[in-house]
Design a binder for these strands. Sequence first.
DNA 1: CTGAAAGCGCTTACAG
DNA 2: CTGAAAGCGCTTACAG
Lengths: 335, 335
Amino acid sequence: MSGGNRRRVTQRDVARAVGVTSATVSYALNGQPGVSDELRERIAKVADEMGFRPSRLAVGLRLGHTDTIGLLVPDVANPFYPELASGVIEAAAAEGLQVFVSQVGLDGRDQLRVITALVDSHCEGLLLTAVLPEDASMLKELQARRIPFGLINRRIEDLPADWVGIDDFAAAKELVAQVVGSRRSVAIFGGPERSSVSAGRTAGALAALREAGLEPLPDGRAGALTRDSGAERARALFDSQGPVDLVVCGNDVIALGVMDVCYERGLSVPQDVAITGFDDMSFASAGPLRLTSVEVPRQEMGRRAVQTLRRRIAGFDGEAQVVELPYRIRRRSTA
Amino acid sequence: MSGGNRRRVTQRDVARAVGVTSATVSYALNGQPGVSDELRERIAKVADEMGFRPSRLAVGLRLGHTDTIGLLVPDVANPFYPELASGVIEAAAAEGLQVFVSQVGLDGRDQLRVITALVDSHCEGLLLTAVLPEDASMLKELQARRIPFGLINRRIEDLPADWVGIDDFAAAKELVAQVVGSRRSVAIFGGPERSSVSAGRTAGALAALREAGLEPLPDGRAGALTRDSGAERARALFDSQGPVDLVVCGNDVIALGVMDVCYERGLSVPQDVAITGFDDMSFASAGPLRLTSVEVPRQEMGRRAVQTLRRRIAGFDGEAQVVELPYRIRRRSTA
DNA sequence: CTGAAAGCGCTTACAG
DNA sequence: CTGAAAGCGCTTACAG
């Protein structure tokens, strides 16, 4: 009764109990022909009673595939990713694929380590959401080793690879064009410059401003996609410039930080300062917040990425599939 | 150049390239004695050049362990869990364990399937955050099969098992005692009754009200931990009772739904309706929200759970470890 | 319809 | 210091 008797029930144990060979158990349980119905049922019954479960390690080793894929996200604490992950997990389950979700850090610091671990575990494909330009050589290596992968959201210039996302440039441009009105002093608080998504959003916002004959304030253009970063940049800007008319933020979390500072300083939104976010995270629509933002079809992005990846795993070898999904401007109370 | 040449580089390939046996490669790479330094270096170099990575499937099968644990959460879209997951992942990495995080659905619908899959994959331990009373027999089965697991947050009565959490009853009681003041008509919008956490919070709130000589309104006491559920219950309540003085919510997400309805109907918070949340999710402290809540040490919960689980995996067979962590009332603007 | 054997990619006693 | 062999738990041709 005591001590570590943690041995698994094996196919062989079942075989012995039934009085057949382990191959017969395998045939019976996998629905292969060549086993009488009566015997098949008896084996199934005994296997079930004994709690036999085939070892995925052994099956994977033998079969050479594992029906698993990996999803890499920078930081599960950013609400953007859990919703994307839901889409991926659901779609994968429908395809009979199990997904391992891993964090790689805001700066992608653990990305290589995580990819290596997943590939070592015979993961059959990878979905990457946090690539940076410097990852290009790693991705080329993946391609050379014929490990299927897909990019979600962020992409890398000149690297042909499957990708699902939105047109961040167009979305940001459209958003800013809608909200700028008569606001003259405008700041852009974008995300990390090296993220293609953040770069696209910043460029789009800039384009809209220039079309309106405006030049944004130079400070705080790039930074982390965090609330603290938004707050710090807002404090610095308000200290140096006084309150500005409009702050265009790279995502909703940065916008939250800016709103924190407005609250601290008794500035009213949008009368004193207008604010836009991006991503339309769930909290953005909350009654007291009513953040103007851009809805990104996160679940759908996940689903589409899985579909493309599954085809690659199945051996599809055609050119890079690029899927650009529609976005939606969500005009609310903050701008 | 074309077609699916996706074969892995194996230990044997390295051995052949160096001109030794595959055992020697294993010894060399695993730092076992009996290989000259010169040869060891040569093997390491060739292995690296060829991109050799030991198959985790094969190693796991051979060694009988995989250094992986599973974390089961109901729904990654609930911001409570990603932060808990961070704590788990970090602590696990420090212990050399990889963690597989899986969703099991708000009602735990997929829990059994996911546990089975993880155990089939030779996962060495499980961390469960979404157990319900009806899971007791499944957990006993896990114990019988000597599969180490730990409970986080929710627990099951009369089932001795490792657990990490807070005293939800005491926290809710303290929170309500602090905010009730002269409010007379009070509603409790709790989470699912069968969740020990939600039940404890509701009971604590009830106890505080009764000590204040109050009986809460009977409607909407239990429901889902979602914003929609909070909004629906608030609409139903306000329609039937008119606005109430105070709504005590089972978590911050429910509270957000209640705030949505207050906003819809032009009720001011906390003047017309006071609201409390629970969990102190990141959005709760946002400037325009300032939700009164209870801070739960999510990261620390994750860390402690991993530590306990690791000891179990290492063979510790002592009695159930119960870790009750401190919470903190966060009084802000909504109550 | 059933059994014996090989092999997936490793590690580890055991001989030399 | 190095090699041949067994075995982890499966699946799948191949004989009977």
